[in-house]
């Protein structure tokens, strides 16, 4: 059966993003924490000595060789990958600086020696915003001063991402839930009690699950991460008695990395939005919100822009 030509495949709008990611990183990075190294167990199937076999000659061998023959080491190396010099390069010029004419604001009264020569300095151009990252096995604490962390595309696309509320019984009947919006703009909430446990509701292959092990937990299936546009994790009182805010919200990422947010800084309110997630071109950006509100789940969802959800009551969406 003739296969379709891959050159006629649909356009690739994501490639612009990948071009952006290929920009050279800022020089002289600070020493990063040592990432965990996975064990290197032996492979289960030991490859035998490699016999050379003949290719199934589906291409005519006597086809005239083109100028783009890629065989062997004659492949020309690609262009150097070094970053080009930018217009902001302030390296010292090789020639002495030109003499500066006296300006109208020159208050020099004369007779004094010439000012010392201007020394050109190299100015490091820093991006307006630098992502905070979490490496495998590392803990990142989010705070008011540093509220966001950006997961890599691997951390946003492999395994699961879970949010866990590690709280003692002294806090009260703390329950965890999440408002979400999918890429098709469907929005609702997921929580283990008083609502839908699965997202989408009643799905056999849920993207998000409201669960509980030792603590209340929200789990995202990252195989379906591209279906998720945004998420807001909230906490509320299951028995509607006020909570004594305490404990820690922990986000578990691939490789054992943890993102932690203290909950004891909260006060008042019947519900609190703890953390938001935005899918930015395949990278999950997590932000500590730490916002308590009066009302219930419905008010928390509306306050964070999930205003297309229809409600049965103040904590149960229409499914």
């Amino acid at each position: 059966m003739a296969l379709p030509d891959p050159r006629t495949a649909p356009p690739r709008p994501d490639l612009m993003f990948l071009v952006r990611r290929s920009r050279p990183r800022p020089a002289a990075p600070t020493a990063p924490p040592e990432p965990i190294s996975f064990e290197r167990p032996g492979r289960h199937h030991v490859a035998p000595a490699a016999p050379t076999v003949e290719v199934r000659a589906s291409e005519p061998r006597n086809q005239p060789s083109s100028s783009l023959d890629l065989d062997g080491p004659s492949v020309p190396p690609p262009a150097p990958a070094g970053p080009p010099s930018t217009s902001l390069d302030l390296d010292a010029p090789t020639s002495p600086p030109p003499s500066v004419p006296s300006s109208s604001l020159d208050l020099d009264l004369g007779g004094t020696p010439a000012p010392p020569p201007v020394t050109a300095t190299v100015r490091t151009v820093r991006p307006a915003f630098e992502d905070v990252r979490v490496r495998g096995g590392e803990r990142v604490y989010l705070s008011w001063a540093r509220p966001t962390v950006t997961l890599t595309r691997l951390q946003s696309g492999i395994g699961t991402l879970s949010f866990e509320a590690a709280c003692s019984a002294e806090v009260g009947d703390l329950r965890l839930g999440a408002a979400y919006e999918f890429s098709d703009h469907f929005a609702s909430t997921v929580q283990r009690t008083d609502g839908n446990r699965f997202a989408p509701p009643h799905s056999k292959r849920p993207v998000i699950v409201g669960d509980r092990d030792q603590f209340e937990k929200i789990t995202v299936d990252l195989r379906q991460s591209r279906n998720l546009r945004r998420l807001a994790v909230y906490a509320f009182s299951g028995n509607r008695t006020p909570l004594e805010w305490g404990g820690t919200l922990i986000a578990h990422v691939l490789g054992g990395g943890r993102i932690e947010v203290p909950l004891d800084v909260l006060s008042g309110g019947q519900v609190a939005v703890l953390m938001s997630l935005y899918n930015i071109d395949g990278e999950f950006v997590l932000r500590a919100e730490m916002q308590t509100l009066n009302g219930d789940v419905r008010e928390a969802a509306r306050a964070y822009g999930y205003d297309t959800i229809s409600w049965v009551d103040d904590r149960t969406p229409v499914s």
């Binding site: 891959p6 199937h45 490859a47 035998p48 000595a49 490699a50 016999p51 050379t52 076999v53 003949e54 290719v55 000659a57 291409e59 061998r61 086809q63 060789s65 083109s66 783009l68 023959d69 890629l70 065989d71 062997g72």
Partner: peptide
């Protein structure tokens, strides 16, 4: 091809520019 076997692609198909795995 069995596990461990290899084949010289561009030697056998000199005009191979783009391959698909």
């Amino acid at each position: 091809m069995k596990r461990g076997a290899n084949v010289a692609l561009t030697r056998e198909v000199p005009n191979l520019r783009t391959l698909v795995l």
